[in-house]
Computed example of a mutant assay.
Amino acid sequence: MFAAPLAAATLLLSGCVANTTAAEDGSGLTVSSTASDCAVSANTAASGTLSFSVSNATDEVSEFYLLAEDGLRIVGEVENVGPGVTRTLVVRAQPGNYFTVCKPGMVGDGVGKTAFTVTGAAVALEGNEQEQIDAAATNYVAYIKDQVGQLVTGTQTFLDAYLAGDDETARALYPTTRASYERIEPVAESFGDLDPEIDFREADVAEGDEWTGWHRIEKDLFPPAAADNGGAEYVALTSDERTYYADKLTANTQELYDAVHDADYSVTIDSISNGAIGLLEEVASGKITGEEEIWSHTDLWDFQANLEGARVAYEGVRDIVKEKDADLVSTLDTRFDSLEKQLATYGTLDTGFTYYNELSTAQVKDLADGVNALSEPLSTLTAVLVG
């Protein structure tokens, strides 16, 4: 996803003057957050401590992120930057490729996403182990908030199409919008009834309970033949019924957003590593079997999002684990890369994937073998991290 960093770097505003000092030592970087852009004063800096002074030129609260090369994991963020206010983000960055992005209104995908390069030699972890753990937890909470914020706006766009009767657009948006949820699914599961209401499959619903959420709408968008519906012809939802289920999904998604933005919300270091493990278990138990998206057959989209979420969680604690078991880190790096490359032969979230019902038995087995190869060492991550 970082195929053209030089091209991306040229997207900086022409009015943004490069800061040579910032490029040399990481101090004095400035960021102007506007309604449509996120102008950083330099697109490169030397490894070590970086300082971004973020000024908000919009009329709503904004955020600034430094993202890892995958565009998902948050290396550092400063939030609640009020209109006309300037706040500073200080991070200790390793050499590599990154992205900068601002998020006016603190929801959605953000604006002005631009390549940022850190050069030089690797730097040592800063602080004692507890301080490193605290930093990992802070960054993971920021990642969760970011994904749920994208889910809120994406779900609204999806439901607007669904309620307007534009089923073709809604079907196209269905798997990509769900990616933000699938990346952080263990978080939703930690809030009691929220995951069942948002994401239960029809087969998961106990007799007498109401079936709501994404998969209720999925069945309406991808109606099954009678043979796949217990022998009964599927009856499409009425306009009022569509509104009812859409309103429920909107309310539940907002409830998830409010929960992770609560001032007291936090995560423990073991919940991060267990989240990575749990996301691979989600792939093994649902996506690789085709049971998750039984009507749309978009299981590989979910697979990709689960895998991305697992890697973000792992990468967040990787350097701490490396100090304890470098061999485990080497194995996990290799097997994550291998499974990502294997899945990429079937497509991407941007271009689409092969539908699950078009996969051969041999292809499903190969994917399952790749998942199992990663799951086995990943299952030891928490024990090493907290041991």
Rank of each mutant, 00 (worst) to 15 (best):
D240Q: 15
E218M: 08
D228E: 15
A227C: 08
V235E: 15
Y244V: 07
P224T: 07
G231Q: 12
L237W: 04
E233D: 14
T238Q: 00
P223V: 03
L237G: 01
R242K: 13
Y245P: 02
R242P: 00
R216V: 12
A236I: 10
P224E: 10
Y245M: 06
A227G: 04
G230S: 04
I217V: 03
T212C: 13
V235K: 15
D228T: 04
E241D: 11
E233N: 09
A236M: 15
I217C: 02
P223G: 11
Y234L: 07
W211V: 02
E241G: 08
E233L: 08
R242G: 06
G230R: 01
G230V: 09
A227T: 14
A227P: 04
I217L: 10
D240I: 10
Y244C: 05
Y245L: 10
T212F: 12
T212V: 13
T238H: 06
F222D: 08
W214E: 08
W211G: 06
H215K: 13
K219M: 13
G231D: 08
I217Y: 01
D220T: 08
A236R: 11
A227F: 05
P223R: 02
A225V: 14
T238V: 00
W214L: 00
D220V: 05
D228G: 11
T212G: 12
Y234A: 08
G231C: 03
